[in-house]
Amino acid sequence: MPRFGMFPAAFGLFDRGSTLKPFEYLAPDTVDEAVAILTDNAPDARLLAGGTDYLVELKHASEVPKVVVDVSGISEFKGIELTDKGLRFGSGVTHTEIMESDLVAEHALAMQEAALTIGAVQTRNLGTLGGNLVTCVPSVDSGPVLIALDAAVTITGSKGIRIMPLLDFFVGPRKTALEPDELLVDIVIPKEMLGRGCSFRKFGLRKGQALALVNTCASIDLDAGKLADVRIALGAVAPTVIRAVKAEKLLNGKAPSDDLFAEAGDMAATEAKPINDFRASAGYRLDLIRTGTKRVLAEALERAPR
C-alpha cells in the first residue's frame, strides 16, 4: 500500500531521522572485550543491556556518550543456576527469564513476585536484572528481595574482580559502586538464604505498569517457632533500598503474631526517610511501609518452612 498522499511510488527509502543523538555502537561477545572497550573509552562509553532504562535516558539526554556498548550478547552474563555458593543470576538475565525459571520458583519465589511487577511483558522481555540494579533508582523493584536475601554482586573491570553485598553496591539514587570501566557480572543469593520464607509487595499508583511508591520485602527463618534472622528491605523510601534493622531486631527471637508484625511495621516506618513528591506524600509512604511490612511479614511466615 502506498504510504503517501499523492505521489505514486516515486521514491524509495526515506530516513526520517532518529530521535537519538549520534553515537557509535559496539557489541562485544566477551567480558574481556567489553572491559577493554570501557577502559579505552572511559568515561565516554556506556553499557546497554535491555535498553529499557538506558535508551529512555538517552532519548532525554542533552549529551550522549561516544560509544554505546551493547552487552546483551555476552554469554557470561546469561543464565540462572544453582552453584555451590547459591543461586546465581547473570546480570543479563531478563525479568521474564526470572519469572519462567523453575529454580527461582523453588528457591526464591519472591524474586518472581518482584519480577512480575516490573513494567509489562515487553519491558520484562528486554529488561535485565543487571540493568535494573545498575540504574539504581530508589524504587528499584529487584532491590528489596535481593537485599532481604543478602545477595552479593560480582563486578569486573580493568583492575580485576570485586564481590560486594548488594547493599553496598547501592550508593545513592542512580549511583552504584561501579567505576566507569567496570561491569556487573552476576548476582548471587547465598545458599543459606534459599528457600526461606520470603515475600514481596509493591504499591503503585495503578495495577498495570506502575512504578513503586513503596516496595517491601521480608525474609524470615523460624527457630523453634520463634522468628530468626529476619530481614526487611524497603524500597522507594530513602535514597536507596534500606534494611529496617530496628524492626528486624524487634522481631528476632519472638513468636510471630499479627500484633507483633503491626508493631514491626510501625518500627520500620520510623527507619525510613521517604520524600514528598507528586506521586505521594511522605506521610502516605509511611502508611504504606507500615501496612506493607506487616503484610510481607505475615506472608513470609506462611511460606517459611517449619
Binding site: T52, L55, T123
Partner: peptide, 24 residues
C-alpha cells in the same frame, strides 16, 4: 516504552520497538 503501540516480536518475544536499537 509506556504505550506499547510499537510492539513487535523479536525471535517470537514481544518487545517495544522504540526501546531497541536496530543494531540489536
Amino acid at each position: 516504552g509506556d504505550c506499547g503501540a510499537c510492539t513487535v516480536l523479536v525471535d517470537g518475544m514481544s518487545v517495544n520497538a522504540c526501546l531497541m536499537l536496530a543494531a540489536q
